[in-house]
């Protein structure tokens, strides 16, 4: 019953039938027929596929968990490293801002030569207000050199080793600085205290001081250069029986957050103690 290859009618009939089926399929007339025929096949195919997938997952799962754990650990390590970098960068930004402010301060006073130093410690005694900086005689620092920050006067060097120095803060109970108030141009003597509060003594009674007046170094006595900002007067006390006025000062420098300071290395403090000797 095989059609003969030489029978053109059979071939033409087959072509017409095929074209007809194709046209019917393209026209959508055979869709219900296909759906009916393919439905059970698709069902079987879906069932087989999901079972095969479940078996494949079961076989591959331990490998995936191990690789996921490894990837998780790597990501955690990377995250920790990035956090560390963020902290380091934030510190660098803060330090950069601080150095920029110090540079501005130094540029504003071109007559001075500065040596920057980091604060690396504080005095262990709560009665004293000293800090330790990481520059010493190897860096040209000497005893008596004034120390400033971008905000104002910090103190002066009292002891020097090769690589470190001890700085007496102006808030120390033993610190005394000759100061001048502005705009009144009145002189006084600034003293520290155990409570870190600054006060000015020896202010003449006739001086007219106001809260908010600026307090600067006067340069008298030769211990500090003149015109370095110390702070502002917060209140003035005048007693009728006293010979002088006293004033409290709000320091410009935040001594609890000292990190980097500048040492004025071209200032030579004067020792005027022989001139004060009465010769008794």
């Amino acid at each position: 019953m095989r059609p003969s290859r030489n029978n053109p009618y059979q071939l033409a009939a087959l072509l017409v039938a095929a074209a007809g089926i194709l046209l019917l399929a393209l026209g959508g007339y055979l869709t219900p027929l296909f759906n009916g025929a393919l439905g059970p096949v698709e069902g079987v195919q879906g069932w087989l596929y999901t079972r095969f997938q479940a078996i494949q997952d079961f076989v591959n799962a331990p490998v995936n968990i191990a690789s996921l754990r490894q990837e998780n650990a790597e990501l955690r390590a990377e995250n920790a490293q990035l956090q560390t970098e963020i902290i380091a960068l934030q510190q660098q930004v803060t330090e950069g801002e601080l150095l920029s402010a110090l540079l501005d301060f130094a540029r504003a006073r071109p007559e001075n030569t500065y040596q920057a130093a980091s604060v690396i410690g504080q005095d262990p005694s709560p009665f004293l207000h000293y800090v330790i900086i990481n520059r010493g005689s190897d860096d040209g620092l000497r005893r008596g050199m004034p120390v400033v920050s971008q905000q104002g006067l910090v103190g002066r060097i009292t002891q020097v080793t090769a690589t470190a120095s001890r700085v007496e803060l102006i808030t120390d109970p033993g610190s005394q600085v000759s100061v001048r108030m502005q705009p009144s141009e009145v002189d006084g003597l600034l003293s520290g205290s155990v409570t870190s509060q600054l006060s000015i003594d020896l202010i003449p009674l006739e001086a007219n001081l106001q809260a908010g007046d600026l307090v600067l170094t006067s340069g008298i006595g030769g211990m500090y250069p003149g015109n370095i900002l110390i702070g502002q007067i917060s209140n003035v006390r005048r007693e009728a029986t006293a010979l002088f006025q006293t004033a409290s000062v709000q320091p410009a420098v935040d001594f609890t957050r000292l990190e980097i300071v500048l040492v004025i290395v071209n200032f030579q403090p004067l020792d005027i103690s022989p001139l004060l000797d009465t010769g008794e």
């Binding site: 410690g121 504080q122 005095d123 262990p124 709560p126 330790i132």
Partner: peptide, 13 residues
């Protein structure tokens, strides 16, 4: 005592 603890203060102690 020199580096960290001075920052922990109660009043001046």
């Amino acid at each position: 005592q020199v580096t960290l603890l001075p920052r922990i203060r109660m009043l001046q102690g």
